[in-house]
Design a protein around this nucleic acid. Structure first.
Length: 481
RNA sequence: GGCGCUAUCGUCUAGCCCGGUUUAGGACAUCGCCCUCUCAAGGCGGAGACGCGGGUUCAAAUCCCGCUAGCGCUACCA
């Protein structure tokens, strides 16, 4: 029996959670659930300058919205300094680390010189050979120092990544890296190692951008005599232009996706398909199916482009396949959040018109927009539709007839309406569509809408007649000159 | 510059490990047709890819080498 599966998602709160981070979180979560392990959330906020409270909240909010519940945490690295200091002390004590007094200026010069010679920059280890007395003297003088890890000069560090396979790097190419800044705060590589050990993490699942850091961390594991976890690096997610994910390209933040009216179920399903495939043919998975079918072994090594169009398609799929009641409730909540006064509407009527638009909307936002002509009598006429269907020779007459026929109806159910309009078309010697199209534009302002009878019944007789009158008025005005 | 990683339709991918079953499969997008009161949905069909160059082999998308391109790391960021 393998030891317990303990997984962590460790974002740094320096910005909102974007789809790349969300995908990492998802894969972490799926792997945990599949293996009945524990999912921990750790906030890597050691960079005090860039970490913000707002980012933290956005990340937590995003994770919750996606339904990725964590079992332990959140833990904050900013509150765990004692652990890092202890490890650093141990490293110093065992001679695996040393104090470095080199100034940023000298380091920059070293870097510049290396670049000028197009040679690789590796810290020259000047401070590695300082005597204890010298170190003490300079410290006593109040000189600030960083602490560097003593990387072995020879040999190589090898690890077997679960996704990428064996990766090997020569130690002499790594260079003594900083594990504690001059202000005493430990850096990422050290904190991650110390915490992953303390938290008994079994698999470190993170973005491919950390692949190159892994050998450094393994060196740290060895020096600290910690057991080394399994490493799993996930391929990156790219913008359509193949550039790394960034703000400038629009909605790639999870919270933005929510604002755009996407459903978390669809986002999760879509994200799962970014770098992972079950058999290449099945694309739609419930969360439970995802958990049972997910496998890190099946994750691709190549970076994937975030295709918003496919997400849109999948969201539409979920709009139509999730239980209607669920979508209706989500739509109402979304609209309330967008400023609509939901309680003012008759609940049953609202549910009805939402239902009509669910199948023709890809997002909740789009759905809300489609509802506009039902909710407001300030019709926004689509100019193309007006020209095509209202300003035609025969339109005025047709709409006039429709108006009178509908106004005269005693019953206003679909059956009666259909009979009325079909016979009207027959009497006028017109095709049904010729009657319907101008009517639709007059009623909705657009040439696209739900079925005309659904529109009419849900608008109600008085509003229908009023709109037909308005359309007639509009036609008269537009024809004046 | 050094090191590391990656490379199948425009995009997400299956196939690659264990060479032949592949006229390289599916999905999104796109184009056409059907359905139809419009839109959407749905149905049917079309176009569309193994980065390049060498090997190995009777046979290579699949194995090997080189190249190219992209990305990552090379921070007192994570």
């Amino acid at each position: 029996m393998p030891s317990e599966v303990r997984i962590r998602f460790a974002p740094s709160p320096t910005g909102a959670l974007h789809v790349g981070g969300a995908r990492t979180a998802l894969f972490n979560w799926l792997f945990t659930r599949k293996n009945h392990g524990k999912f921990l959330l750790r906030i890597e906020d050691t960079d005090v300058k860039r970490s913000t409270r707002a980012s933290l909240e956005q990340i937590l909010d995003s994770l919750q919205w996606l339904g990725l519940q964590w079992d332990e945490g959140p833990f904050f690295q900013s509150e765990r300094k004692a652990h890092y200091e202890e490890a650093i002390g141990q490293l110093l004590h065992t001679g695996n680390a040393y104090k470095c007094f080199c100034s940023p200026k000298r380091l920059n010069e070293l870097r510049a010189r290396a670049k000028a010679m197009s040679a690789p920059f590796i810290y020259d280890r000047m401070c590695a050979t300082l005597s204890d007395a010298e170190v003490q003297r300079r410290e006593a003088q109040g000189e600030r120092c960083t602490i560097r890890f003593h990387v072995p000069l020879s040999g190589e560090t090898i690890f077997d990544d679960v996704i990428f396979g064996p990766v090997r790097v020569e130690n002499k190419l790594i260079g003594d890296f900083v594990i504690a800044r001059s202000d005493g705060l430990a850096t990422y590589n050290l904190c991650a190692v110390v915490d992953d050990n303390l938290m008994s993490i079994s698999h470190v699942i993170r973005g491919e951008d950390h692949l190159s850091n892994t050998s450094k961390q393994i060196l740290l594991y060895h020096a600290l005599r910690y057991p080394v976890p399994k490493f799993v690096h996930l391929p990156l997610i790219l913008e359509p232009d193949k550039a790394p994910l960034s703000k400038r390209h629009g909605a790639t933040d999870v919270l933005q996706l929510r604002e755009e009216g996407f459903l978390p179920e669809a986002v999760v399903n879509f994200l799962a398909l970014l770098g992972w495939a079950y058999n290449g043919a099945t694309e739609v998975f419930s969360l439970d199916e995802l958990i049972s079918k997910f496998s890190l072994k099946a994750v691709s090594k190549a970076a994937a482009v975030f295709d918003a169009t496919k997400l849109l398609w999948m969201n539409g799929l979920y709009m139509r396949s999730l239980p209607q009641k669920v979508v209706i409730d989500r739509a109402k909540a979304f609209m309330a959040g967008a400023g609509y006064d939901i309680p003012q509407y008759d609940s049953k009527w609202l549910d009805g018109i939402i239902t009509l638009e669910i199948e023709r909307s890809k997002t909740l936002k789009e759905l809300a927009a489609h509802l506009e002509f039902f909710l407001s009598d300030q019709l926004r006429y689509d100019e193309t539709a007006v020209e095509k269907f209202l300003l035609r020779e025969e339109s005025q007459e047709i709409i006039g007839h429709v108006r009178n026929r509908l106004a005269s109806l005693e019953q206003f159910d679909i059956k009666t309406l259909e009979q009325a309009l079909r016979s009207l078309a027959e009497e006028l010697n017109l095709k049904f569509g010729q009657v319907v199209h101008p009517t639709r534009v007059a009623l909705t302002g657009s040439s696209a809408s739900p079925g005309i009878f659904d529109v009419i019944t849900n608008l109600g007789q008085s509003r229908v007649v009023a709109r037909l009158d308005s359309a007639l008025e509009l036609i008269r005005q537009r024809r004046q000159p």
